[in-house]
């Protein structure tokens, strides 16, 4: 009975921690993962630092939201299926709640001319943020000096922006190419 209490207390703590982290984290998956490390590795000692590093790599490699992926891995490690559920719920509820409220306001206020001015100015800011992301990430790709990767980048842009190819096909094509080339280089290295 006492052990049961302890377990449900741990699940509650897992859920509560993810709820707070998810509700207070601006700026995407990497920020959330570093906060999770602080809480679960440094404060609670539920998993080791190297485990958390592996989980971060896995969360980034999997499709989907990085924060959700990391919550699944940590939740499973800490409390099995119930832990996974508690962690995922904690991650999902804040954005669900916050955006539900904002959407209600959005529908009511989007027609207001002052709100429209504010939003259109902020759109210019978003365009600049995206431009900044592309410049930084693009420089990262170019610095690898791989002709194939540069060609993939140009071809993907033309396919989507000019030819109107579906985004999912471009992702699948690039992934397949990467897998094939990796297998070929592996074979050559082995031979």
């Amino acid at each position: 009975m006492e052990k049961r209490m302890h377990r449900s207390a741990q699940l509650l703590r897992l859920f509560g921690s993810m709820l707070v982290i998810s509700a207070c984290t601006f700026g995407g998956g990497f920020v959330i993962v570093s906060l999770m490390k602080k809480k679960f590795v440094d404060e609670y000692g539920w998993l080791s630092e190297s485990e958390m590093l592996d989980y971060t790599a896995l969360a980034q490699s999997c499709p989907g939201a990085i924060a959700v992926n990391a919550a699944i891995l940590v939740g499973w490690r800490v409390g099995g299926a119930a832990g996974m559920l508690a962690a995922v719920l904690g991650t999902v509820l804040p954005p669900l709640g916050i955006l539900t409220v904002i959407t209600m306001f959005y529908s009511a206020f989007a027609g207001n001319p002052h709100v429209a001015m504010l939003l259109s100015g902020m759109q210019a800011g978003v365009a600049a943020v995206l431009c900044d992301v592309v410049l930084s990430m693009g420089r990262g790709v170019l610095s690898q000096r791989s002709a194939i990767k540069n060609a993939v980048m140009v071809a993907a842009f033309l396919a989507v922006a000019v030819a109107g190819v579906s985004v999912a096909w471009v992702i699948a094509g690039a992934a397949l190419l990467g897998a094939l080339l990796q297998m070929i280089t592996r074979k050559e290295a082995g031979a």
Binding site: G138, K149, F157, I171, A174, L177, G178
Partner: peptide, 19 residues
């Protein structure tokens, strides 16, 4: 990691197109 290495340039291009 091989797959991810090739997803990155494609993803940059996709973000550029949406941007």
């Amino acid at each position: 990691q091989g797959v991810l290495g090739f997803l990155r340039p494609a993803v940059v291009a996709l973000i550029a197109s949406a941007g």
